[in-house]
């Protein structure tokens, strides 16, 4: 029982990486980890690498409802959450639910939205409910936000502050596909139409069961807890960093490591699980000193991981 629904989740992963999302193994895996931990994922990459395709494919194969928000500088919070509209037939205001009420929400170019909208959305992500005009509406379960942002664009953007970034369990890039693969993608064109026809392989209940299995069926030993603590403590004391990984970052790291162990078919977390997710979970939470802004945070966190001995005994 302890690793319930693992086979189904693995099938999902294999179907996606093997047929529809070739070359995006890492992003798919991390998305599933985010899904299994109940967190959210931030895809940071240039446009046109399949961020939207990934989100769509994931939504279809999981059999979940899908909503999409294209952020612009004039996007209002109510465009996300929904708003009350006067219904003439009923002579009353009726709440029209916004895209955030879907299970999988793709928030494209999240850094183009105004801080006000950003914070409304991020609050919904964290609280998992929306309060509009004094009424609180719960969001659907499972709930996964896949936000994307283009790190290169500077004009007309409102970069997410670190405190907001901390809300994302995982931040990762997608990267260019391998050469051969990219050639075949170019040759055969977009697969957006195929994706529309993917049969759902799991249900929302399956995902919730798997989520419970990750939380309760995977053992996190004191040794690995100490290892996670050693990592976040090292980021806090690092000379290049102004501030390191928060306690929430530590929690997320442990959750993601559990999910990784679950995917590996282990009922206990090992240091390799932590190492595998640490950069994706931790790097976006690091704040560099002003004079070190240009440092690549992912590489920095990798270097820090390399300096911490793995607990073996």
């Amino acid at each position: 029982m302890s690793l319930a629904k693992r086979a189904e989740i693995l099938t999902v992963m294999e179907t996606l990486t093997g047929r529809h999302l070739k070359g995006k193994d890492k992003a798919v895996r991390l998305s599933l980890i985010a899904l299994l931990t109940g967190g959210h994922i931030l895809l940071e990459d240039i446009p046109g690498l399949g961020k939207t395709t990934l989100a769509l494919a994931l939504a279809n194969v999981l059999g979940l409802s899908f909503g999409r928000i294209q952020c612009t500088s004039d996007l209002l919070p109510s465009d996300i959450t929904g708003l009350s509209v006067f219904s003439r037939e009923e002579s009353s205001f009726k709440f029209i639910r916004g895209p955030i009420f879907n299970s999988i929400v793709l928030v494209d170019e999240v850094n183009r939205a105004m801080p006000k909208t950003q914070s409304a959305m991020l609050e919904a992500m964290e609280e998992r409910r929306v309060t509009v005009e004094g009424v609180t509406y719960p969001l659907s379960e499972p709930f996964l936000v896949i936000a994307t942002q283009n790190p290169l664009e500077q004009v007309g953007t409102y970069p997410l502050p670190e405190s907001q970034l901390d809300r994302f369990t995982i931040r990762t890039g997608i990267g260019y596909p391998p050469e051969e693969l990219e050639k075949s993608i170019i040759a055969y064109g977009s697969i957006r139409d195929d994706i529309q026809h993917i049969e759902p392989l799991v249900s929302a209940d399956d995902i919730l069961t798997a989520r419970r299995a990750v939380k309760e069926g995977v053992f996190l030993s004191d040794k690995v807890t100490n290892y996670i603590f050693a990592i976040i403590a090292a980021t806090r004391n690092h000379p290049l960093l102004l501030s390191g990984i928060s306690t929430r970052g530590g929690i997320n790291m442990a959750e993601a490591a559990r999910a990784n162990a679950y995917l590996e078919g282990r009922e206990h977390v090992v240091p390799e699980d932590v190492r595998e997710v640490a950069v994706a979970v931790g790097s976006h939470r690091l704040i560099c000193r002003p004079e070190q802004e240009s440092v690549n945070k992912e590489e920095l966190l990798s270097a820090i991981l390399g300096s911490i001995p793995v607990p073996l005994v």
């Binding site: 090992v270 240091p271 390799e272 300096s307 793995v310 073996l312």
Partner: peptide, 9 residues
């Protein structure tokens, strides 16, 4: 085997 890499690796 370096100390920062685990047994499963």
């Amino acid at each position: 085997w370096p100390p920062d890499r685990g047994l499963y690796d």
